[in-house]
Amino acid sequence: MTTSTPTAGETPGGAAADDAAIKGTQPSKSAPDDRRGSPLVRGVVLAMCLVWTIPTIGLLVSSFRTRTAVTGSGWWTVLASPLDFTQWTVQNYGDVLFNSGMGQSFINTAIVTIPATVIPITAAAFAAYAFSWMRFPGREMLFVLFVGLLVVPTQITFIPLLQRFGNLGITGTFLSVWLAHTGFGMPLAVYLLRNYMGSLPREVIESAKVDGASEFQTFTRLILPLSAPALAAFAIFQFLWVWNDFIHALVFLGALPDVKVMTVNLAELIGQRGQDWHLLTAGAFVTMIMPMIVFFSLQRFFVRGMTAGSVKG
């Protein structure tokens, strides 16, 4: 169970290490009588946790305060007068969702993200199966291509892709960004899935073939279900990566209201109304809702996916 690669979650055994990494279920390295931590240790951890939470709490609190309240006093003053209901409002959310187009952008983000997650996984799963369990000339060389492309900055493709998409007339359409994300997500998807599928026990695949299953059947009925943890980890990584993506949406989709995704919308809002913190905080929170839900409901897969996927170019 090694964690010395950037893809700790990639093998069936590696997953346990990641789970333990967050949950603290593995034995501690400190002296046995020391598990409660000295006051100093507890103090430092507490301080770091505060730095990691307070900025987000400030954002959340401010998003429910009126414009006058947000510009008139710091959000921390609500601690002194939480029951002063004149400062609280949900108007900011109504404003960003309907006047600033964040509602439409939410839908746009979903339209971009779902195919940009499913299409690469489908293609990568087939490729990963072939790389793991089929013999053919050029197998290793072609796989090295994917490994090499892992860290290539996607910016290298922007100018030619923009020109080609322009010629095809698909600039600023969802299709262009689906295609781009499919290409950009593929090296990581193939790499992770192959590492996982390749570590499944050989006997299982061979017994299926003895029973007369075709490659296609072996793949869809046996390998895919067995690879569910790796598929889930990559799916969550890719989903959040595209959901949170800014640069590719900005370049390939742009800022027209019909296609504008949430990150582009929020960035525009910051540029145009940089002092209207009551709107910016609400807008930022709308962009964060879905990732937060994923984080709290699927934390185990989330950790695995994020650690495995962080090498992405």
Partner: peptide, 22 residues
Amino acid sequence: SKSIIFLPMAISFVGASTIWGF
């Protein structure tokens, strides 16, 4: 404590820029 430190991984860079801009 680990979950708290890990949580920002879910937030977009644009969202985090808003948080810290504030």
